[in-house]
Simulated assay, not measured.
Amino acid sequence: MNTTDIKSYMQSVGQEARAASRLVAKADTAAKNHALTAMADAIRRDEKLLLAANAKDLDNARAKGLEASMIDRLTLSAKGVATMAEGLLQIAALADPVGEISGLNYRPSGIQVGKMRVPLGVIGIIYEARPNVTADAAGLCLKAGNAAILRGGSEAIHSNQAIAACVKEGLRLAGLPETAVQVIETTDRAAVGELITMKDFVDVIVPRGGKGLIERIANEARIPVIKHLDGVCHV
C-alpha cells in the first residue's frame, strides 16, 4: 500500500471499530461469553492451520536473520495454541465488569454517589512478536465491552491473521459484529502512525513491547496512552 491507501484503510478500520464499539458496549454477558467460547473452540479446531501459518512466519524470521530471542517469542507450539484457547475460556469465566457499581455513599444533600465501570470504547493495541497476544487482547477487550484494533509485529503477520480468523468466527457465531476486533492486515509501519493519531475513532492506545516502541508511541500519539517504560512497572 502507498501512503494514501494506508490512510484510507486505517480510516475505514477506525470507522468500523467505532460503530462496532457501540454495539459491543451494549452486548449482554451471555453474548460476550458465547463469542469467547466460540473463539476458543475455533482455535483448538484450527490448531494445524495456526501452526502452519506460524511456520511461515518462522521461516521468514530465520531468512531475515532475526535474533534467537525474537524467534523464541514468535514460536507457537501445540501447547501454546491450547493455552490461547484456555485463556479465552478463563476470560469467559470472569465476572462481567461492565456496569459494576462500587463506593456508593450518601452525600450531605441526600444524593447517593458511586462509581460505575463502563467500556472505554475503542482500544488500539500495538505489540511485537508474540502471536498469543492477539487472542489475549481480543478476549480482554471484548469482555470489557470494548472494540479493539490490534497491530501485531510484522514478523507475526501470518500467525496473527490466522488467529484473527478464529476471533471473527467467534464474534459472528455470537451475533456480534466481526469488526469489534480488527487485526491490521498491512505490515507497513505507516499504519501505526495513523492508528496513534486517529483521535476521532480510537479512545486509548496500549503499546506492548520494547523500549523503542513504547517511546515512539508515547512521543507521537495524539490519543491517551497506557504505557510502561522504565523502572518497576508492575507497582
Score class of each variant (00 low, 15 high):
N160F: 00
G14D: 10
N146H: 13
Q90T: 14
V167A: 01
S102C: 15
T29L: 05
A25D: 09
R222A: 14
A61F: 02
I43H: 07
T83A: 15
H234R: 02
D59T: 01
A93F: 13
A190W: 08
Q90H: 12
N146Q: 13
L120R: 08
G153Q: 02
H234V: 00
K64T: 04
A165C: 08
I43E: 03
E220S: 12
Y106E: 15
A221W: 04
I123H: 05
T187S: 12
G14P: 10
D203F: 03
L140E: 05
A218S: 14
G110N: 06
K227C: 05
T29P: 07
E194G: 06
H228W: 08
I163T: 08
K115D: 07
I101G: 12
I214L: 14
V232G: 00
E169V: 06
N54R: 03
L173S: 14
I226E: 05
L195M: 11
G121S: 07
G124Y: 00
A147Y: 08
A30M: 14
T29E: 13
Y9R: 14
G114W: 05
Q11Y: 10
A17V: 03
N160H: 08
S102L: 15
E194M: 09
M39S: 06
V232T: 01
M70H: 11
I125Q: 02
A95C: 13
A52V: 04
V118E: 07
G121D: 04
A42M: 07
K199N: 11
E86P: 05
D5Y: 09
A31L: 11
I125H: 00
V81S: 00
I125W: 02
L89V: 15
L88F: 12
D203V: 06
E185R: 11
A162W: 05
D203N: 09
L74M: 09
